[in-house]
Amino acid sequence: MSRQSIYRKLTGRRRGVFGYSQLWTAPDHLLLVKSTRFAEYYQRFAFADIQAVVITELPDRIAAQIWSAIAAIAWAFLALLMYGAFAKGFFVITGALASAAVVVDVLRGPRCRCHLYTAVSRELLEPVDRVRGARAFLAEIRPAIEAAQGHLDHPPAEPASAAFADRPPEVPQPPGYLPEILFLVFLIDAALVLADLRFPSNQIGNALPTTFFAEIVLAIVALIRRAGRDTRRLIYVVLVATLGCIGWDAFNLGRSFLVLLAESARRPHPQPLMTAWEPLAHGEAIFAAAWRITAGVIGLVLAYLSRVA
């Protein structure tokens, strides 16, 4: 017969790959449980010893959430290109699950980090990871802490951190290697385009939409990250110049794919789409390979020279 536990559940489980963590409350302390499934580890924080709880709202992830939603929906729409019932079901179900995960993430609200301070430790409370939940958590434990300690009406006369009240100086960040990676991807894509031109019967061309998409994402991220951390100008001029070319290639790819879809719809007996796809016409392919080689080589040389200088 198990005896009555003194603990009451305070938060849900924050699950990880190898376990979870959860917060429980007892009459006189807070219990942080970290579990590996096969063992549980306990940390107790007496209400009388808790000095502070700091909830920090984290930067929002709207862009990442939008991209995730678009990717999940696009994944589900791949079912339209499939013929087998299993393949259709697979893409629809996995796409729907991914979309649901994005929706749940949005509905749970902004993320946060919650730290608990005692005289000897600063503990990150992993189960408290959303602002809404953190406020509920604080509202739950504040009366218990104040019952044990009383209320702090005034800030201490000499705050320990008064010397840091001003905004800290800006710390320069290293520029990173993203533009270099993008120029390398240009060269790889040029090789793919030329290979597709030389060996049109194989499936190299089917990889081009993915690699072109990677180019667009890398270019946008590189331009966004440039602000405040990368003083090199020339390579970004080259990068901006390539955006128009990427757009032109994307337009050609999209057009050829739509033509393929239309032709497939006209056929009485549908065939697998991707095996019949020629992503770029001859002239378009030459142009795509040429500008990529040019931009890739110029960009890499400029990046090398700017780093040497």
Binding site: Q51, A52, V54, I55, T56, E57, P59, L138, L152
Partner: peptide
Amino acid sequence: QPLEIAVFPAIE
């Protein structure tokens, strides 16, 4: 970043 800082008498 927005913060919520709850400090209790144990700090003194």
